[in-house]
């Protein structure tokens, strides 16, 4: 049996918001350590890897591994019904046909209970080996979201160029070009505002702007985002959770 209670429903709301436009159906795999999701978008360009660690829950219990096959659009309709500050409890039997979603208001005596039908989904869990990256950038997630939104208005591709001194985001479209250059710096007072650039080898990669626009839907999950890049390889974009992470692996574009 699974019984997981969040102190606030906001975390699950943000998680669903962050992934529902990239994947429609996915398995939530529940183990004693927490909940994981791995899913690939229909075009097989973007992979989502989510871990909501046990410590993200106020109370968590999962005696046996349980798989919840969830339609995220339906789940989102229910999860939106809770207030962000409500307790959120997920309950499922060992071989469940549905999952119970319970919201509890902290001040009033209001309890809202929903049941979501589960689906039987294929689960081909992918073992992603530890990848080697040539450059790592950590920056404020809101800044990365703004750069993505701004440059996407010019082109359907977004180029990321990393040198020793800086990282340059660049787009080249029909009516014009744009770029944003960031230098590494440390903000002692607000560490989350810092920009950290670690580069072993210079990087010049091009990505589909629409996929990065989907990735930055994770912005509300974390103050900062870490971007890991390697030549002609998928990039890793990571938003840290209080216990766990939301990672996106994005295949690049390149000349054949």
């Amino acid at each position: 049996m699974l019984e997981g209670k969040f102190e606030e429903s906001s975390l699950m709301k943000k998680v669903v918001d962050a992934i529902k436009d990239s994947v429609k159906l996915c398995n939530f795999n529940c183990t004693e350590h927490g909940v994981t999701v791995q899913a690939v978008d229909d075009s097989r360009v973007l992979l989502i890897s989510l871990l909501i660690g046990e410590a993200s829950f106020e109370e968590y219990r999962c005696d046996r591994n349980i798989t919840l096959g969830i339609d995220l659009e339906s789940f989102n309709k229910i999860i939106k019904n809770g207030n962000s500050s409500d307790f959120l409890t997920l309950i499922a039997e060992d071989s469940p046909d549905n999952v119970l979603i319970i919201f509890e208001d902290k001040k009033k005596d209001r309890v809202s209970e929903y049941s979501l039908k589960l689906m039987d989904l294929d689960s081909d869990f992918l073992q992603i080996d530890d990848m080697e990256f040539d450059a790592t950038i950590t920056m404020p997630s809101s800044e990365f979201a703004k750069i993505t939104r701004d440059l996407k208005t010019l082109s359907e591709s977004l180029q990321i160029i990393v040198t020793k001194e800086n990282v340059k985001f660049s787009s080249d479209g029909d009516f014009g070009t744009g770029n944003v250059v960031l230098k590494g710096f440390v903000d002692m007072d607000k560490p989350d505002e810092s920009i950290k650039i670690d580069m072993a080898r210079p990087i010049n990669l091009t990505f589909g702007a629409k996929y990065i626009a989907d990735i930055v839907k994770g912005t509300s999950l974390s103050e900062s985002v870490t971007i890991k890049l390697a030549d002609k390889s998928p990039a890793l974009f990571e938003y840290k959770l209080p216990s766990g992470f939301l990672r996106f692996y994005l295949a690049p574009k390149f000349d054949e």
């Binding site: 690939v40 097989r44 973007l46 073992q127 295949a251 000349d255």
Partner: peptide, 14 residues
Amino acid sequence: HHQQQTLGRFFSSL
């Protein structure tokens, strides 16, 4: 022109 790659090219099990 840049071609979009898929993850299957990099992760064999996809």
